[in-house]
Design a protein around this nucleic acid. Structure first.
Lengths: 177, 177, 177, 177
DNA sequence: GATGAATGAGGCTTCATTCAT
DNA sequence: CATGAATGAAGCCTCATTCAT
């Protein structure tokens, strides 16, 4: 499978080792075949990015929905857990893809997933110590991502990363200056 | 100046446009000369990374020292302000260099700067709601970085980025779950 | 129809866009089928060349025959008209095919058509100011072709091209230096 | 010399054999060196086209000037001779370059050379049986080119080609229908 | 020291042709 | 017969590095 071979190369050698010959070899096909499925090298990366984003999107949306009716903290925990586990899956690949995403300048940043989380915050806006807005939501995500990355970089377990991420998230949203 | 030329190319064209001919041309020297100052291309990047890290280190250390004797929040504000302004300087270059740093696998992550901030936290350990440790310090930095990056990406002013960063930092450190 | 699809591609994209995948796609068949009708790509071009040459041949031979019994100038006019209209049909395709013909080094240059025109000249050899020979006939054709090409290139109408071509032909054959 | 190597390849193998590796090999340099002198393959062809056009231009302009003051036929002979000898120089290369010129869509068709010949015709407009115009001039050139090509294709000597070309040219210009 | 022409491995992509289904 | 995925040689071009001047 070309995408899986590509993913593996990005994981093990990063973008520098990601060349069409290597991909074809790893996938067990010829270079020519690559070009029957993808119009060029970048499009392979784009496909990987897309599938990661979709997976992330689905996970988060599901977490938000699963928590409906529960209290804020429980709901946040579900979301944090979803994000942590999504990013703990093939983290190196994830990193590389994010760097490439910037270069490739993909459009819509999975709008719906952000929308979904924003709705969650709105549902609980009177429990939250900051004004709820798109920016707030972005901040929450940014903080979460940072802690997940730190956890990955330092070899922390998903469990402890989840703890820290929860604390940071709640601190940001609930701390009454 | 070779380093400045390199910096400018990385800023304007990213790592893809960063090649020795372009550097030499921009610096107004010959390729040959490049190789008399730097053994290879990567070493130029390493030099840039080093100088950025030094600058960051110095700024943060100074902020920590300047705040000695003051109360925790004021001190944190100084540090946050230092980090924000350091990253608001040539942010694109900064981004690229960080990506390269990962690839080049540089060693010591500016130990002293972390040491310094860690000391600050220890100075105030009884005001802080989390156990003070190296990990705690890393978390604070990670959260700060995330908000600075978000601010840069969204075009926020240094001032508002500082606000958000302060809030996130304080929330994390002081929020009594 | 494979040949028609090929013709259209040669017309619109020239020899550079003429590849088997494009042909098959345009013809609405699979590449595999192409190779059941033609042993290789060049043979398709050869078939097109052949059909153009046949059409040209037939037109000219008919013009020569239609003029039998008439005076020289009228007969020449018929031939000129035949050549002009033959070349005004799909001129771009015609051009490409001629270039390819050179490369493919086709054999017999539609001998009969030249034979026919040569006979016309012989029929009137005592009205003509140059010795009638195979070479003379070739010259007449060459001059005609040149004026048709010029007409096509400059967007002249078939009518005015015919005028000029007549003049050049008669000038060559009848001018008593 | 890269241009000379390129010319030789075009002569012996046509445009199909004209690839950067072959050029480099024939020129005795590396592919890389090619790209220090020319930005891409087409630009090499363009350079060759340019030099041919310049040579042709110079020859014709000189022929026109050399004939000033002489009678029309003598002047035409000089021009015809110039064109014949220009085209008898590396005719195959010339052919290939002309085909490529069409593809590359070069601009100004050596305007000055046509201007020059047009002036000649104007100088003698009352001896000529056709209205003198740009079109007339183009026709003369077209007819000449056709006869030169025919001469080359049939292996005729420059001398006899010149004869035929003279006759065709004079026939066209002087024949009083 | 400085120069910059030369090198050539290596990367992306195309496309004529084959062959298993 | 038709299909079209697979093949891989071959073409264009880039760029880090070297070295003779």
């Amino acid at each position: 499978m070309i995408l899986e071979a590509s993913a593996r190369i990005l994981e093990s050698d990063g973008i520098r080792g990601f060349n069409t010959n290597a991909i074809a070899a790893k996938a067990g096909v010829s270079v020519g075949s690559l070009y029957q499925y993808f119009p060029n090298k970048d499009s392979i990366v784009r496909a990987l990015i897309g599938s990661f984003k979709n997976a992330l999107h689905d996970t988060v949306v599901k977490a938000v929905q699963d928590g409906r009716g529960k209290e804020l903290k429980s709901r946040l925990r579900l979301v944090v857990r979803a994000l942590v586990s999504a990013h703990y899956y093939r983290p190196r690949l994830n990193r590389v893809l994010e760097a490439e995403e910037e270069r490739l300048g993909s459009e819509a940043d999975s709008a719906a997933f952000h929308e979904s989380l924003l709705q969650l915050l709105r549902d609980h806006h009177n429990e939250v110590a900051v004004p709820v807005s798109r920016t707030t939501e972005r901040i929450v995500i940014a903080v979460l991502r940072a802690l997940v990355d730190l956890g990955l970089a330092s070899g922390a377990s998903p469990r402890s990363t989840e703890q820290r991420a929860m604390r940071a998230t709640c601190g940001y949203l609930l701390y009454a200056g």
